[in-house]
Amino acid sequence: MNTLPEPDEITKHYEMPRDAWEKALTSLLGTYTLYAPVKRWDSIDYELISSENSSKIVYNLPKPVSPLKLFLLPVKENVVLDSDLQKPFVVLGTPACDLWALDLLDQFYLHSDYIDPYYKLRRDKMILVGTDCHTSLAHCHCSSYGLNPFPEKNQDLVISIIDGKVILEINSLKGETFIEKLAAESKLQPSENGFPDDLLKIRQAVKSEMDSRNKRLPNYQETTSVVKNAGEDTWKNHSKTCVACGACATICPTCTCFLLIDRPGFEKVRQMDACQYPGFQRVAGGEDPHKQHFVRFSNRYFCKYVFRPEKFDALACTGCGRCIEACIGKINKNEIFNELTK
């Protein structure tokens, strides 16, 4: 079990009543474009926030249906024309799992050999207000992979609301600038109080809850060998209900694959793609090392737990559980791992 950071590592934070926060936030809508999670049916997802819906923002709930990557890698984007993105944008309410996923995305798209200029532009313009998860969902398992259910990396600020009181932590220069603008609107002062005890208690409780629910689940390193050692039959068996829809990859915060599509005028459109689709590895003449469905199915597991970890210094699965929730074939990777380690 990993330990929670000591409270004294956390330096500056702000506290304010929720209505003051909401007022200040809407006053910044001219300066920033704001996206935040709003409840839709029985789930939550990011929406563009205006003064109309700002009171509908939900806080501290896991987890927006859309992974954070969609703000950086739209499903389809023309990557030859100049981008019209001007205004900085704030993404509020991102949980820890998606923030960790940025490590892998950055290593891909900002690799110094070839920087993706469109990803970089968005990344530079993005201000991330991460959120603590004050509860966890059935398939959340970030803690099994050594993560905590609260932002620890890549966020500019962290928000929590406890008993109508907003607690904001500042974690970066971008966060500082944002809070300065906010403070100008709302006469905000850094809190003199120590880091709120209640919040620490919640953090511990959510983590314990998740740990106990996923007790049997192998950790990341163990999963690597579980995947390596699983035989062909495992993949054949578990892929029986897979219809290769690619939802698991589309919804995954760390899946990076795409296809370039040509448009007249030597334009290109970068469209998100997935190794689960037939033909992903097809070469001329029809040869395809991934021709068999079970091989494509297993590739996602190998990619996440074997290939990416060998090559990148980042988790390729953050335990967000979205692929389990999204699967229409009811395939649950955690059940597979539990079974394989029985």
Partner: peptide
């Protein structure tokens, strides 16, 4: 090695061969 390729830059994933990106 000949693999399916799209980006040529080690990003799109089409040319994956185990841990390698064949293009890069």
């Amino acid at each position: 090695m000949e693999k399916n390729m799209s980006c040529g830059l080690g990003k799109c994933g089409h040319c994956m061969m185990g841990e390698y990106f064949v293009c890069k």
